[in-house]
Amino acid sequence: MSTASLASELGSVRDLPICAQPAQTVTSHPSTSAETMQTIHTPSPTAVPNARRTALRDGTQRVLRAVIPPILGFALLILIWELVSMKTKGIPGPLVVWHAAVALFSDPFYSNGPNDQGIGWNILSSLKRVAIGFGFAAAVGIPMGFLIGRFQFLNKALDPLISLLRPVSPLAWLPIGLLVFKKADPAATWTIFICSIWPMILNTAQGVQRVPQDYMNVARVLNLSEWKIITKILFPSVLPYMLTGIRLSIGTAWLVIVAAEMLTGGVGIGFWVWDEWNNLKVEHIIIAIFVIGIVGLLLEQLLIQLAKRFSYENA
């Protein structure tokens, strides 16, 4: 909302608190209540609807301001897409894709054998791989992050290793996974594990190192047991950092799973993209791009909400 319009609305919105305030003082002076009550209530029939109307107008304006720019953005995207599809053979336009999507999502959970399953199953099995790989990464990475954050020696020992391995694309680890697990499915999960573990370790360790000294002083003065220190001080203050690690991990995991599945095959959204490419169903590939984007967005939002729940305004 622009400041100019805010200022212009402010005058009328102010009515609300002004007529609300005497009502509060009434409760503390019961002797004069009957008298004051009347003087308050006389102007209210006109004042309240007035304020409510401006509040309503204010609300709709805010919604419009929030909604219009994204709509314009999407419209621009669709326009460019339409133009490109008209000029380029093989790229379907928005309308074609829309109809294909309606057909596809009318039956997302069919199953005709392992190589022909509904898009719903494909998304779910990709998510399952991400969940498993990520789960293992959290189980290993969070404790490791705590240890590295708490013990300087471990930090110095492992820091160069992590710095060396972290920039490696997780796909480079796929052959190792195939070699060790002899099967495609766990190998894909293995790449997720590899790419998820670094942000988990690093963010947790950073969180532990940044626990405010004040809190540790409290722990020392109260002479808390190591268990209490972990549960009452370390864990809660590291939690926001850990959630950041989780968010980054899941973000990358979702990026990597598509590529990994293209290489390993099976059921999954990444493999599905590859399959539709072989079938030359380009509209399905475009649908997949949107689906991947939307799922990634939802995961991110979910974790942001979770992080908000556990962040402490410390003022």
Binding site: D214, N217, R220, V221, N223, K232
Partner: peptide, 27 residues
């Protein structure tokens, strides 16, 4: 070393923000 027989009131209160006031004292 520090110990509970020498309690400290810190300048910046140093309450744990994830515990209620009651739980901070209870700790």
């Amino acid at each position: 070393g520090p110990g509970p027989e020498r309690a400290v009131v810190f300048q910046n209160h140093s309450l744990l923000p994830w515990l209620t006031c009651f739980d901070n004292v209870y700790l």
